[in-house]
Structure formats: structure tokens, C-alpha cells
Simulated scan of single mutants.
Amino acid sequence: MTRGETVGEPDDGARKTPDRLRRRASRLLSQLTVRSDRLITDGLARADARKWHYAVLASLQEYGPASQAELSGRSGIYRSDMVGVLNELAERDLVERSPDPGDRRRNVITISARGRRHLRRLDQVLDDLHDELLAPLSPAEREHFVQLLTRLLDHHTQPS
């Protein structure tokens, strides 16, 4: 890295990226991930939310009530971090905790009516942010891009 260069920043015209670097899918994905993460994190913050809030609410909406361990597995949030995320959501009345009737030592987490409304708002926020992220692509290209990313991710995360 040269002096003054920032990781993940685009070429400014004065600096030229070697073609062999521009052809590396891993490098392109990494740079796009940095930009995407910044865009989504900042956009959700303006909506008073975080990515983990969205992940938990989406999981509860799609799959129903769950234990903290189940939510951790569904969302990719470490179990040690899940308590903090759930505390934040519960303080805002976006989720409800209740003792599991089958095992009183654990809680069952349910999305609240307020949480469902908040999730719909976050869906719109993320739709707008994804429009911004994928602006250079046509709707058909966006769909194809997501399909390709999904196929790659599925390939690399499936048990062998």
C-alpha cells in the first residue's frame, strides 16, 4: 500500500490499479463488501437500528419464536453477543421474552407487533440502500448478481 492510500477506497484517477488486481474476484468482492457494509451500517443507524437487530427480527418473523441459541444459529450472531442484542430489542419493545414451557431455564423470544412494524420500516430502508449500492445494474442484472452470490455462498458454506 502506498502512502496516502486507504484500504477499500476507489481509484481517484491519479492512482491506477493494476489490471491483474482488477480481475481478481476475491479483491473485488472484498472492496465491495467494505463499501456495502459502510452503506448499510450508516443507513440503518439513521433508522435507529443495527444489522443484528434486522437479522433477529427477520428470523423471528420468518420462522417464529425461538430460543437464544436458535436465533444465534439462524442469524450468525455469536451466542455471547445475542444477549446484548436481545436486551436492546426488548428495551425498545420490539421482542418479548417468556419462559419456555418445556424448559423453564431458557427463554423463548417472540417478535412483538411493534417489532413487526419496525421490521417493515427496516425492509424499506434496506431496499433503498440496496438500490443505491446496486445503482449501476439493471433490475435483471441485480437479480442475476444476487443469484450468483447466493450460489457462491451456498457452495462455500455447505458441509462437505
Rank of each mutant, 00 (worst) to 15 (best):
D103I: 09
T157M: 08
L122H: 09
D127H: 07
D37W: 03
R3I: 14
R106V: 15
L137E: 10
Y54P: 01
L86I: 11
D131W: 06
L89Q: 03
R46N: 11
L129M: 10
T150C: 06
S36I: 05
H53F: 01
H118I: 00
D127L: 14
A113T: 15
G4V: 01
G13Q: 06
E141I: 00
Q147F: 04
S26W: 06
A25K: 12
I109D: 01
S98I: 01
G102S: 15
R50E: 15
R79G: 14
L152I: 13
T2C: 05
R97K: 15
L122S: 07
D48K: 14
A90Y: 09
S75H: 07
L21V: 05
L133Y: 13
V146P: 00
I77V: 15
P101R: 14
T17M: 02
P10Y: 02
V95S: 06
D37N: 06
L60N: 12
A90F: 07
R117H: 05
P18L: 04
P10E: 02
E141F: 05
R114T: 13
V85G: 00
S72P: 03
Q31A: 06
L122P: 05
D103H: 13
R24C: 11
G13L: 09
L148H: 02
S59E: 15
D127V: 11
I109W: 07
R74Q: 08
R117L: 10
I111V: 15
H53R: 04
S112K: 00
L60G: 08
G115R: 12
N107Q: 13
P18S: 08
L153T: 12
F145L: 10
A135K: 09
R20Y: 15
L149H: 12
L134V: 02
Y78D: 12
A45W: 05
R117C: 00
E91W: 01
E143L: 09
E91Y: 06
L148R: 04
L129F: 03
I109S: 00
H118C: 07
D154E: 08
G115S: 10
R117A: 15
S67K: 10
V125G: 05
D12F: 02
R27D: 07
R104S: 14
S30I: 01
L71S: 03
V146C: 01
D128W: 03
E62H: 14
R38N: 00
L122Q: 10
Q147R: 15
S72G: 01
L71K: 03
L134I: 07
R24A: 01
R24V: 08
I109C: 04
D93S: 15
D128G: 06
S30L: 10
L133P: 00
L153Q: 02
R38W: 10
D37I: 08
G102I: 00
P99Y: 04
A113V: 15
D131C: 07
A47V: 10
R74L: 04
R38K: 11
D128N: 07
R104I: 01
A25G: 04
D123F: 11
S75Y: 08
